[in-house]
Design a protein around this nucleic acid. Sequence first.
DNA 1: CATACGAGAGTAAACGTTTACCTTTATTTC
DNA 2: GAAATAAAGGTAAACGTTTACTCTCGTATG
Lengths: 348, 348
Amino acid sequence: MATIREISKKANVSIATVSKVLNGKGGVSKATIENVMAIAQELNYRPNLTARSLKSGQSRTLGVITEDLTVFNTPEIVDGIDAYCELNDYHYILGNLRFNKRYGHHPQNTEECEKLVHSLVDTMLSKQVDGMIYIGCHSHAVVPIRNNGEIPFVYAYCYSTDPNVPSVLFDDQKAAFEATQLLIDKGHRNIGVIAGQVDSIHTANRILGYQEALYANNIPYNPNITVNGEWERNEGYSLSEKLIQAGVTAIFAHNDLMATGVIEYCNEHGFEVGKDIALIGFDNREIGTACRPTLSTVSLPLFDMGQTATHLLLDMIDGRHIKCGQKLMLACTVIERESTGKSRKEQS
Amino acid sequence: MATIREISKKANVSIATVSKVLNGKGGVSKATIENVMAIAQELNYRPNLTARSLKSGQSRTLGVITEDLTVFNTPEIVDGIDAYCELNDYHYILGNLRFNKRYGHHPQNTEECEKLVHSLVDTMLSKQVDGMIYIGCHSHAVVPIRNNGEIPFVYAYCYSTDPNVPSVLFDDQKAAFEATQLLIDKGHRNIGVIAGQVDSIHTANRILGYQEALYANNIPYNPNITVNGEWERNEGYSLSEKLIQAGVTAIFAHNDLMATGVIEYCNEHGFEVGKDIALIGFDNREIGTACRPTLSTVSLPLFDMGQTATHLLLDMIDGRHIKCGQKLMLACTVIERESTGKSRKEQS
DNA sequence: CATACGAGAGTAAACGTTTACCTTTATTTC
DNA sequence: GAAATAAAGGTAAACGTTTACTCTCGTATG
């Protein structure tokens, strides 16, 4: 590995001069610049970023913590982080808490969880990261991270109760409003909801958006046709029976997994999804294009969330931004496929 | 940020002594050890790993390059890397080439590709990584990386033509053998194949394994019922027609996407998958549990590949292992679900 | 009692940069 | 022609560690 010193020897100049040339600082003659550059090229010089970091106190490296890298939404957020980093000459080290393998999908043992997170944060701080992003795709486990304001911190997909840490979220309520509105536009007024877990923020906000859409369209809210599931396919299956018996003509499922359960129920019981029953899911998972009929759904701005979180973080690092507990809400987009069918007028 | 120097001042000893204590080296009295430790704790001391790296020339950091982080198999490999790193006190920086967003799924412009890869490798070397892993989940783009043997390098999921770089792969042939054997065990002798792209190594090896299984069971190989698709669902759909007309009773599809196409075709044309037609896919994607009937398939040892690649790499870094072009083949596992049905004897 | 030895602790250099400040020379200005 | 100024380059310290080497005792050894 060629160093600045080797270049300086070969070029018969001091290391300071070499450094100036390499960093494009002034005060060097054209001749020396060319000479030094040529030699650097020849020796295949690559700056030692470790040394630079030590001197400057800035690593240009972020720490990214994920709860579960193998859950469907995480990789694309990381991808967004990666893209923004690349654009800004930053790097990042990744740490996966591996909640799936350690605790299953819904971590319980919060004490152990916290210890895990803290130790990861600690080693990342040891690595001198300039800032950190926490991607909390398991909504239940919003671990408040003891940061002491040592370095800038941003949450993505979840938020912390720490008032000093901003977060980047997506707008559940607005998305639910639009999903419901799509069903209403198709001519439905009796719209059931297969909601997520009772204690989830996502569930609450999506119900809010649903109600808002009903209200905006003068449709009375009927609490009996909003039922809760645990995000799993089989609940979509079993709960759809109840809703259909209650006479709904459309169903808003709070995720695609449960929505596919609805499709299965309908297929098996002679209801045609997209005709007898309109259906929309949430998450835009791959299954939605694989099932029949294809599933209308809500697409999450995952890549954008990664980018935005990183943008925010770099701003904070550069002191361009005041640390605050603000929540940045990004919009989702409704994707219309077959399961929502034609409008009821067209049908008849 | 507390430094070793601050501790030394507070403890009235030299920084060398503090360093010795912190690293558990001998030659220090119990009293000083306790004192120094207490002060370190009190100051919330965290070693500056950047400084340590600079001094030692070892960063304990790996570089991980992915072609596409959002493709289904990559995150789990990374997860395996992460797990092994955690166990060994290593870290890694991730660089995503983002082939999906840049070139679509099958990168064409190899010149630009190579430039991209080389620049990423260069910056990672600048970051003083101790070794690198390249995860090449797009089989077509096995970019040979100019490494000059500067640091240890391992390929995962793909291999390079560079004879000095080992790779960690899964055993396509053996997996195909077992998948085919499962169909044979169910009583089928007329087994069609919806193979992958003609020029793919995966395709070739899976056909080999298929033939091997036929041979082992004294079933003549009929080239007319092996047809190639481009890994996409719609090809599974259209090619199944041809195979079924040719009289096959079972189909081995080279991936789950094409297999779901087969299911769709069968559903629409009155063939019952799992009864009239036995079907097995490859990849163990999520769809396989969501479709009806559920899809028998082959599960890839992704997590294990990540772990093994990292294991190999750390061995090379520690000089415990000779760099060579060896290929490590990990075994896949066949997952039996509904689509392969009961055995034919039981059926009748 | 002189010597050797070992434990405990300290000194200083080194890793590869960056940068504040200094020196030298040449050029301009009055 | 002296003084000021600018341009080109060099010196050395600093970032936070690690570590080879040195020093100073007190104790054991002959």
